[in-house]
Write a protein that binds this DNA or RNA. Structure first.
Lengths: 138, 138
DNA sequence: TTAAAACCTACTAAATCTATAGGGTATAAA
DNA sequence: TTTATACCCTATAGATTTAGTAGGTTTTAA
């Protein structure tokens, strides 16, 4: 299951991407428009800034803006930052690999083989979709 | 992320499916062989029995056995029983649908559209794999 | 009769999620 | 230079889920 944090983060990025001008967008505006708790959203936007997706401007007229073009932002990257691994088990994760305690041999594990297929299917979808693709005008 | 419960459940089913004879397999045997806490495993096997995947026999020489043939058991069905929805958000779940609190219009939601694609990709993989496919002899 | 094995209920420690509280800091406009 | 704005930061807390553990009861085969 996708956490609310990730879901809100994606919606916020899409909201910012839909704006044609590159003026900073306030957290309060996104919060109201997308029905997200403002304080919670602030922490998410902050994280997106620290991980290089957003820039920010303080003070009156400030807000958040995209650093890269929407078509350059793959959804795999967004989800990895907000949610963590895309894989359903750590032992098939490309970016967050962990060995299973119970598994002496990954290649003999039935779950492992299945989850590699699921991971690749998900990676394929999320890698082909960019922020531009999902931020269609309403 | 797949819960340990689901992971153990799949491994247990695969273990039982690998046995050629249809004699009942004890929880203790699976527990030792797959490095799963026996008590935890018992509760999982019980759930798999109640949901129609396994039959059981009590007393000495008892254990669990498959009710259907491995090739008739789709992994979608197993995961839905043990883990719940396959979709990453409830609003795109076929079997566990729930409306999002924050979303007035699902069709205008960027997350919704993306997650439908992810769901379909996962469903495709999990629907094509049966217990027979993943229970390859070690 | 005894041992084995499924069955059942209740509980719990730890982690995670989803925020909320309460400010601090930098900036722009008046 | 003041003031309002808006980002920035830390701490905390309630709810839920996870991953078990504990301690039994019931059924069956030998």
């Amino acid at each position: 299951m996708l956490s609310k944090k990730t879901k809100y983060g994606i919606k916020a990025l899409a909201y910012i991407a839909r704006k044609k001008d590159r003026k900073p967008v306030q957290a309060s505006e996104i919060s109201e428009s997308e029905n997200i708790s403002q304080k919670f959203l602030e922490s998410i936007l902050l994280e997106l800034r620290k991980s290089g997706f957003l820039g920010s401007k303080k003070g009156k007229g400030g807000g958040y803006y995209l650093i890269k073009e929407p078509q350059e932002i793959k959804m795999t990257a967004v989800i990895r930052v907000l949610e963590g691994p895309i894989a359903m088990v750590p032992c098939v994760s490309l970016n967050y690999y962990e060995k299973c305690d119970d598994c002496p041999d990954e290649n003999a594990c039935s779950v492992h083989k299945l989850m590699i297929q699921v991971r690749d299917a998900s990676l394929n979808v999320l890698g082909e979709n960019t922020l531009e693709d999902i931020a269609i005008p309403q």
